[in-house]
Design a protein around this nucleic acid. Structure first.
Ligand code: ZN
Ligand code: ZN
Ligand code: ZN
Ligand code: ZN
Lengths: 180, 180
DNA sequence: CTTGACCTGTGTCTTGGACACAGGTGTAAG
DNA sequence: CTTACACCTGTGTCCAAGACACAGGTCAAG
């Protein structure tokens, strides 16, 4: 599990080579033309929160959020208390973001991860959950579509109507006369 | 402003006739064929929260919510502390519900009501706000549409794929192999 | 008198983070 | 060495529009 020699195409993008040298104590060894980074400070290629966030294109707050709810379980540097995110955390977060893109809720994702953590196939759960979420999305889609049409029609109708001052019975004639 | 003789087609639906006799102390006067309800207990045709809610097809919690944030300002019965909603409150709530149907936020509605309460035309504000809200709705519509398509495509693709047990690199191949 | 339906105010919950805050840490410049 | 500044920690609060809960008061019917 512990690698001292990182295969960048395996784990992360090529950017890693430049990134990793930022604040870590990694050293460039050898004199060959393709310098290879060896991590000396962190046993498992760990990174800090902001770096983790940057690698996956999210904010540090997002990483902290998933840490807070225990989807990510980084280690802790004993000397300074900083959290250390491993390759496993990276994989989990990448998974979480993919699942969010597919409309799964965070709670769904926790359920899926629980299955996977017990080495059981999460696929049946995934299939069941996406059916539910797709139904809800269809529902929201229909509602949003209808709302959009109502609003568009209101704008069109209102363009023909004058402004008015409110009366005892009418607060805004635009809104109240828009029957639908 | 104070009416002792309610014109039901003016203010409320015909249902009011039956409803009003529920818990109030109204009396049916006269011997004509169309009995007319005269309210004796409440000077301004006031009703209690649940009745107000029922008349507009919302829950009592919704009425309490708009009361809490001071969009509705019912009077208070001195003897029992119950809130008394007037015709004005009814008109305001009906307006609020119409505006919500058109995608205005509660804050928008407060701004609109502030104008109207100062006898100024809220129409320019209404036109400006609906442009904003319509833009946001178009945005959400596009996002919901895309999400729906992604989800639908996932369901289709996944129907051809088997379940799998997670590995060290892969939590759920369905989600992670769904590249898009 | 009791039951049950209604009423009150207040507080908390919902989503997926975003933002704030108080205080600790690491590093580079002066 | 000091100081500045960027980074880190945990915790708490906020968002929208109500929904729900809770403790206690009120009212009419049986
Ligand atoms: Zn480390
Ligand atoms: Zn799977
Ligand atoms: Zn009254
Ligand atoms: Zn108007």
């Amino acid at each position: 599990m512990t690698k001292s020699r990182i295969n960048s195409s395996d784990l992360l993008s090529g950017l890693e080579l430049m990134i990793d040298s930022y604040q870590g104590k990694e050293q460039i060894l050898g004199v060959n033309l393709n310098p290879v980074i060896v991590r000396l400070s962190c046993e498992e290629g760990c990174v800090k929160v902001i770096e983790m966030a940057r690698r996956l294109g999210v904010t540090a707050d997002t990483v902290r959020f998933y840490t807070r709810i225990k989807i990510l379980k980084p280690g802790k540097n004993k000397t300074n208390g900083y959290r250390e995110y491993s390759e496993n955390d990276y994989n989990r977060l990448r998974f979480v973001l993919s699942a969010r893109q597919l409309g799964f809720s965070v709670e769904d994702i926790q359920e899926i991860l629980n299955h996977a953590d017990k080495k059981k196939s999460p696929c049946p759960t995934v299939r069941r959950l996406i059916d539910q979420r797709l139904n809800e999305t269809e529902q929201r889609f229909a509602e949003t579509l209808q709302l959009r049409e109502r609003m568009q029609q209101a704008v069109v109708e209102w363009s023909q109507k004058p402004d008015k001052v409110p009366t005892g019975h009418m607060i805004c004639h635009l809104i109240e006369e828009f029957a639908q």
